[in-house]
Amino acid sequence: MNQVTSIAVGFDGSVESETALRWAAGMAHESGASLTVLHASGILERLGSAFEPGVVPEAVSRIMAEEGIDSSRFRWVIEEGDACSALLQCASEPVSAQVLVVGSRGHGKRPGTMIGSVSLEVVQHAKVPVVVVPGS
């Protein structure tokens, strides 16, 4: 496989997405790749959201610092759309991620069900390798 220079990871604030973020940050640290931390903003976030463009969430900053990724090596991005489509889009320009990273289960999902599974959708449709990080 060619040298990985760009990685994208989905982040929704859940514990599972923090685990995925930590794994992606570790890979970025080892490979020297840049990291895009993506939050997909759904319809309901119009009514109030914990996340703002340009304001890196505390959890993201903390994990980046712990994994040795300085602020020049990662970007915090909010895209309006569903999580699956937004992460898949990261494989195209301008992000051009060569690896997509996603937690195995996001906010509020019922364990053991496939419906609404972002990780499953991303795996099914991605044209680049996908890493699904199991929750701790």
Partner: peptide, 15 residues
């Protein structure tokens, strides 16, 4: 899947 999910009690499908 959708039918089974509903009759299993439902829940959040996505955000």
């Amino acid at each position: 899947e959708l039918g089974a999910y509903c009759y299993g009690g439902g829940g959040d499908i996505d955000q």
